[in-house]
């Protein structure tokens, strides 16, 4: 499990230095005042795509010996309704789930409250799942 802790640490440092944990950068993105986050997401997708494609093409194995595989995503209307709701929260908090944890580490202890409410939101979804349109 240490390897995931270290991978997460590297990721957290990147989130901080990319200013992805900045409420200001998120506002600039949604006001079309900065290319920064579009550049980050776009280049991240391209690099990830190339990486996964190469790993599958060469049938690479993970270090525990299993063949690399990724699961397909099933479509549901939740991606529309939930996606919009998530977008509202993203712009309000100025952070998606990863950056929330990095913000706490960076010293904004009050963001633990935001995380607690995010956990509560997840729990409410679980509770109401069968009644929501999917």
């Amino acid at each position: 499990m240490l390897k995931y802790l270290l991978a997460g640490t590297a990721f957290g440092i990147i989130l901080y230095k990319a200013e992805l944990i900045s409420w200001f950068r998120i506002q600039e993105m949604f006001r079309l005042q900065s290319f920064h986050l579009y550049g980050i997401i776009g280049s991240a997708v391209l690099v990830a795509m190339a990486g996964v494609w190469l790993m599958k093409k060469f049938r690479m194995k993970s270090i525990d010996g299993t063949v690399i595989s990724t699961a397909p995503k099933q479509f549901s209307r939740g991606q529309i309704y939930g996606g919009l709701l998530f977008g509202f929260g993203w712009a309000a908090t100025g952070a998606c789930p990863g950056p929330l944890f990095a913000q706490v580490g960076a010293g904004a202890g009050v963001v633990l409250v935001t995380i607690a409410f995010a956990v509560a939101g997840t729990w409410l979804y679980g509770k109401w799942k069968h009644r929501l349109p999917h």
């Binding site: 997401i41 995503k73 939930g82 709701l85 009050v110 935001t114 607690a116 509560a120």
Partner: peptide, 27 residues
């Protein structure tokens, strides 16, 4: 509203959508 309301929306919305920026927008 920003911290509690925003947090609720992030948690509820991401699970309803089956993922967040990392799982959907990147992966």
């Amino acid at each position: 509203l920003l911290m509690a309301g925003g947090g609720l929306l992030v948690g509820f919305g991401s699970r309803y959508a089956g993922g967040c920026t990392s799982g959907h927008a990147i992966m």
